[in-house]
Design a protein around this nucleic acid. Structure first.
Length: 456
RNA sequence: GGCGCCGUAGCAAAGUGGUAAUGCAGUGGACUGCAACUCCGCCAUCGUCGGUUCGAUUCCGACCGGCGCCUCCA
C-alpha cells in the first residue's frame, strides 16, 4: 500500500501523489512567538514531524517548512506590557519553541521562515491582488475582497451568507463587504511597521504564509498542515490570497488538520487557567512521554490530556524499553512490508503502529541470536519514524524521574549492602534495603547475573 | 441560527457488514527466599431507540450526551 492521506479540502482519504516526486513540499503553520508554547502547539509539531519522517521513507527530497510568526498584535501587546523590545521578545520565545520541540524529538524543519523577513514579498503579493481586482485599499488598510473569489469558503465548507449570518463581530466601516479580511493595516508611529505603498503599517496575519510558501516552496505545494482551528479563517484566507494572486493555481493539494487537545475534558483557555505549557510538562515527564501520548491517538481526533494519561504513557514506554533492555544495540532497519509501517501509510495511523511496537518487542524478547537482532532492528526502524525509543534502554531507566532522586552511587552502595545481608540469610535486612530504595523510586531486579536496578 | 465532529472495557485507543487490535490499571497462576522482570490465563457485545439486512458496533433515521468553528487575533 502507498501513502494515503485525509484531505480536509475534499473531506476524504485519497492516495498521496506528489506534484514532483523529486521535490515533495510540505508547509505547516508554526507558532506566534509571544509566550511559551502549550501542549496544543506541540501536537501539530509532533504529528507533522512524524509525517515528515514518513515521507522521507518514500521520497528522497522532502522540503518541510514551518514558519515563525514574529509580528502580531499579541506580540506587540506582550512587548508593550513588559517594555521588552519586540524582536528580542520574539527571538527569545522562538528559541524556547525550538528547545521544546527538540525535547519532543521533532526534527528541525528544512526551512524556518520568519514573517518579518518577508515583508517585501508580502507587499508584492498585495500589489498583485490589487492589480487583479481582488483587493482594495481603504483608510490605510488593504482588504481582500472575498466576493471577487467565486469559491471562497470551499475549505471550511460554508457560504458567505452563512458566515455573515452568524457573525458576532461588528463590521469595520472601511470594509466594502463584511467578510473582507485585512492584508495590510496601518501602524501607529510607536508601533512596529514598515513603509508600504499604503503607508506605514504591518501585514495581516494570513498573508505571511501565502508569501513564504510561494517564495520557498513554490506556487503549489503538496501538503499544508496545521491545527483544526486554522481551517477558518486562516487557511481559507490563505487559499484566497495565493489562489487569486496566482491566477487560480491552488496553493496546496492536500490539506491536513490535527484535532484539538483538551485538558481534563475542557478546552484549554485563559479563563479556565488550564493551559499546559510544554516546558512545565517537561519538568515532570520526558519529552518522549509527551510524544507517545500525542501519537497514541489518531491525529485527527480530539485528545484529552490529563495526569493519568501521562503517567500511563510513561509506564507504557517503560514496557517497550523493558523489552529492549538487555538486548545489544542495533541499527534501525525499516520493514516496509510490516503492519506497523503500513498503518502509518494509512493516514498516519500511529495508534496501530504503536501496537505493532509491542508485538515486535514481545517477539524480540522471546527470540534469540540473529532472529532477535532482526526483530530489534525492525522494531527500531518502526519507532524511528515515530520519533520514539530514541534513547538507550538502560539509560532510560537510570534517568532521574521527577524532581530529584537518590544518586547512582548511593544505589550501588545499598545494593552491595543488601547482597551482604542476603549472603547472611538476613532476609529481613535485605528486604528493608529494597523497600527503602523502592520508597525512593528505585526497583531492584535480581537475576542469576546479579542485581540490577531501575527507576520507576 | 449556520457548518462540522465525537460517544467502544476502570483509564486510554484502533477497527470491521458476520459476534471487538493494543497499552496502562486490575485479577488468577508459573517463576522468586520474598519481590521485580518475564511468561500463561481472565476482564467490553461497541450512548439509547427504531429501520435496512440472512446478519450491524460497523449503513440509514430519530433521540440523548459531549465538543469545535462561524474573521482582525480571546
Amino acid at each position: 500500500m502507498s501513502l494515503a492521506l485525509y484531505n480536509s479540502l475534499t473531506r476524504r482519504k485519497a492516495p498521496f501523489t506528489p506534484l514532483n516526486p523529486e521535490r515533495v513540499t510540505m508547509y505547516v503553520c508554526g507558532p506566534t512567538v509571544y509566550n511559551r508554547v502549550h501542549i496544543g502547539n506541540a501536537r501539530p509539531a509532533v504529528v507533522f514531524d512524524t509525517l515528515f519522517r514518513l515521507l522521507q521513507t518514500q521520497y528522497s527530497n522532502v522540503v518541510y517548512a514551518r514558519n515563525i510568526t514574529d509580528i502580531d498584535d499579541k506580540i506587540m501587546n506582550t512587548a508593550a506590557a513588559s517594555g521588552e523590545d519586540i524582536s528580542e521578545l520574539s527571538t527569545r520565545f522562538a528559541q524556547a519553541y525550538f528547545d521544546d520541540m527538540a525535547a519532543l524529538n521533532c526534527l528541525e524543519p528544512s526551512i524556518i521562515p520568519y514573517a518579518t523577513q518577508h515583508i517585501p514579498e508580502m507587499i508584492s503579493m498585495i500589489e498583485r491582488l490589487i492589480a487583479k481586482g481582488h483587493a482594495y485599499s481603504a483608510d490605510g488598510h488593504v482588504l481582500f475582497a472575498v466576493q471577487s473569489m467565486p469559491n471562497y469558503g470551499a475549505l471550511s465548507g460554508r457560504s458567505l451568507e452563512d458566515m455573515l449570518a452568524g457573525a458576532r463581530v461588528e463590521v469595520a466601516e472601511y470594509k466594502q463587504y463584511a467578510g473582507d479580511f485585512v492584508l495590510w493595516k496601518p501602524s501607529a508611529d510607536h508601533e512596529p511597521g514598515w513603509q508600504s505603498p499604503w503607508g506605514y503599517g504591518r501585514p495581516g496575519w494570513h498573508l505571511e504564509c501565502s508569501a513564504m510558501i510561494e517564495k520557498h516552496l513554490g506556487e503549489t505545494i503538496d501538503i499544508h498542515g496545521g491545527g483544526q482551528d486554522l481551517i477558518f479563517p486562516h487557511h481559507e484566507n490563505e487559499i484566497a490570497q495565493s489562489c487569486c494572486a496566482n491566477d487560480g493555481q491552488p496553493v496546496a493539494r492536500y490539506w491536513l488538520h490535527n484535532g484539538f487537545i483538551n485538558i481534563d475534558g475542557e478546552k484549554m483557555s485563559k479563563s479556565l487557567g488550564n493551559f499546559r505549557m510544554v516546558n512545565d510538562l517537561l519538568k515532570q515527564y520526558p519529552g518522549e512521554v509527551l510524544r507517545y501520548v500525542i501519537l497514541s491517538s489518531h491525529y485527527r481526533s480530539e485528545q484529552n490530556f490529563g495526569k493519568e494519561l501521562l503517567d500511563s504513557a510513561w509506564r507504557s514506554l517503560d514496557s517497550l524499553y523493558g523489552y529492549l533492555r538487555g538486548v545489544p544495540a542495533g541499527t534501525a532497519k525499516l520493514n516496509k512490508a510490516s503492519a506497523g509501517y503500513q498503518a502509518l501509510l494509512d493516514d498516519l495511523n500511529s495508534p496501530v503502529a504503536i501496537s505493532e511496537l509491542y508485538r515486535l518487542g514481545k517477539e524480540m524478547h522471546a527470540a534469540e541470536g540473529e532472529q532477535q537482532a532482526q526483530l530489534r532492528d525492525e522494531l527500531l526502524g518502526l519507532s524511528d519514524i515515530m520519533g520514539l525509543l530514541q534513547q538507550d534502554a538502560d539509560q532510560w531507566f537510570k534517568n532521574i524521574r521527577g524532581d530529584q532522586g537518590i544518586s547512582e552511587a548511593d544505589i550501588e552502595a545499598l545494593i552491595v549492602e543488601r547482597q551482604q545481608a542476603k549472603a547472611n540469610k538476613d532476609y529481613t535486612g535485605a528486604d528493608k534495603v529494597r523497600q527503602d530504595l523502592l520508597d525512593q523510586g528505585v526497583v531492584l531486579e535480581d537475576s542469576r547475573e546479579g542485581t540490577s536496578w531501575r527507576r520507576s
